[in-house]
C-alpha cells in the first residue's frame, strides 16, 4: 500500500469524570460526554455529567491539550423542548469544542442561536451517503459526520471522497448492527428508545431468572435469551437475543461481539478518515483506560510507518478481554459487496 500519512483523532468515551481522566491520561485526542439527562443517547443510571463536572473535566482535558465534545444526540419532543435548547445554550456557554447532534430541529436551533458553535452530526443522524451529509452541511454548516456502522470500507471511501465535511468512523466497541437513529426495536418492547429517551433496552425493563432450564433474560417480560449452565450471559439487547425463525432457535440478528478495526487502521488512514471513535460511555474507567491505551499505541504505530504496520498480539488480547462476547469483528467494514 502506498503510504499516506494523516493524523486520525482518537475520540474516546467519558461516562464519568474518572473515565474522562482515564481517556486523557492514556492518549485520547478528544473525549465525548453528555449531560445527566435524556438529552444524550447514553442516558443510563449513574452516568454522565452536570455543568460543574463538565467544567472540571474540560479544565483537566485542556491542561493536557485534549478536546471535549458534548453529545446532545436524542430527538426532543414538544413537551420537553426547552430542556434540549437549554442544553445547547449551556454547551455554548461552556465553550465545548464541538456538539454532537442528531435532531434536525435542534440543529436548526443551534445553528441559528449559536453560529460559532461547532456542530458534528451524530451517528444517530443516520447519514450514510454524500447527499444526506450535504443536506446537513448546507442547512447547519456541520463540520464533521459520524458514520453509522453499516458501511463497507469501499463505501466509506466513496463518502469521504465526496463529503464536504470530515468523516469519523467507529473503531472499537459494542456493535450496533442497525442503522443508528433508525432503530426503534427497544421502544416497541419497552416504550423507550435511543431516539426518544436516550436508552436501548433500558435497565429497569431487564429481568434475570434462574430456572431449571437455565438462566433466562427478559426485557419487559419478553424472553430474550436462555443460557445453558456455564454459558456466558450478555446484556439482553434485543438484536443480540436468540429467537425462533423457521423452526430454528439462533442469534437471528447478531451474535454478541465487538467491533474492532485494529486490522485496518492503515486503510482507514489512507481513505482520509479524520477521527476514530471508541464506543462505551456506559463502560468503566478501566475499560476506557485499556482501550484508549491500545488504540493510541496502534494509531501511533500506524502513523509512524503505515507500510509496515503490524498488528501486535498483545493489543488484540487486551481488547478481546474487554469485548462483548469476548470476540471481535470488522462488522460491515469488511464486506466486499453492497
Amino acid at each position: 500500500m502506498e503510504s499516506v500519512k494523516r493524523h486520525m483523532d482518537l475520540v474516546c468515551p467519558a461516562g464519568s469524570l474518572p473515565a474522562l481522566k482515564a481517556a486523557v491520561d492514556h492518549g485520547a485526542d478528544a473525549v465525548y460526554l453528555g449531560f445527566r439527562n435524556a438529552t444524550n443517547a447514553r442516558n443510563f443510571p449513574g452516568l454522565n455529567f452536570d455543568v460543574d463536572e463538565i467544567q472540571q473535566g474540560m479544565a483537566y482535558a485542556r491542561d493536557h491539550r485534549v478536546r471535549v465534545m458534548l453529545a446532545l444526540n436524542t430527538f426532543p419532543q414538544p413537551g420537553h423542548w426547552p430542556e434540549w435548547t437549554r442544553a445547547v445554550d449551556e454547551a455554548a456557554d461552556l465553550g465545548v469544542d464541538a456538539v454532537i447532534m442528531a435532531d434536525p430541529g435542534l440543529m436548526r436551533y443551534a445553528a441559528r442561536q449559536h453560529p460559532e458553535l461547532r456542530l458534528h452530526l451524530s451517528v444517530q443522524g443516520s447519514a450514510t451517503n454524500r447527499h444526506s451529509i450535504a443536506f446537513y452541511h448546507d442547512e447547519f454548516r456541520i463540520k464533521q459526520v459520524v458514520l453509522p456502522r453499516v458501511l463497507s470500507l469501499s463505501q466509506v471511501r466513496q463518502v469521504i471522497d465526496s463529503s464536504p465535511v470530515d468523516v469519523e468512523v467507529f473503531g472499537f466497541g459494542s456493535l450496533c448492527i442497525m442503522v443508528e437513529g433508525r432503530c426503534i426495536l427497544s421502544s416497541y418492547v419497552t416504550g423507550e428508545s435511543p431516539n426518544t429517551c436516550g436508552v436501548c433496552s433500558p435497565a429497569q425493563a431487564v429481568r434475570w431468572e434462574e430456572t431449571p432450564r437455565g438462566r433466562q433474560s427478559r426485557l419487559n417480560g419478553v424472553l430474550i435469551d436462555r443460557y445453558r449452565h456455564n454459558e456466558a450471559a450478555g446484556y439482553p439487547t434485543l438484536c443480540k437475543g436468540r429467537f425462533r425463525v423457521g423452526g430454528e432457535v439462533f442469534y437471528a440478528m447478531e451474535e454478541p461481539t465487538s467491533l474492532n478495526t485494529l486490522d485496518i487502521l492503515p486503510e482507514l488512514m489512507k481513505l482520509g478518515v479524520a477521527a476514530i471513535k471508541v464506543e462505551g460511555r456506559q463502560r468503566s474507567p478501566a475499560y476506557v483506560a485499556q482501550v484508549t491505551q491500545v488504540m493510541r499505541a496502534a494509531l501511533d504505530a500506524c502513523y509512524q510507518d503505515p507500510d509496515n504496520y503490524q498488528l501486535q498480539a498483545e493489543w488484540v488480547a487486551s481488547l478481546d478481554k474487554v469485548s462483548e462476547g469476548q470476540s471481535h469483528t470488522l462488522g460491515a467494514l469488511h464486506r466486499p459487496w453492497q
Binding site: 430527538f75 426532543p76 419532543q77 414538544p78 423542548w81 442528531a102 435532531d103 434536525p104 430541529g105 435542534l106 436548526r108 436551533y109 443516520s126 442547512e139 437513529g181 433508525r182 431516539n195 426518544t196
Partner: peptide, 14 residues
C-alpha cells in the same frame, strides 16, 4: 416516517 421529525422545529425545517 424515517426522517425522524419529532418536534415543531423539525416540521418547520422540512
Amino acid at each position: 416516517p424515517h426522517l425522524n421529525l419529532y418536534n415543531a422545529s423539525s416540521l418547520e425545517l422540512i
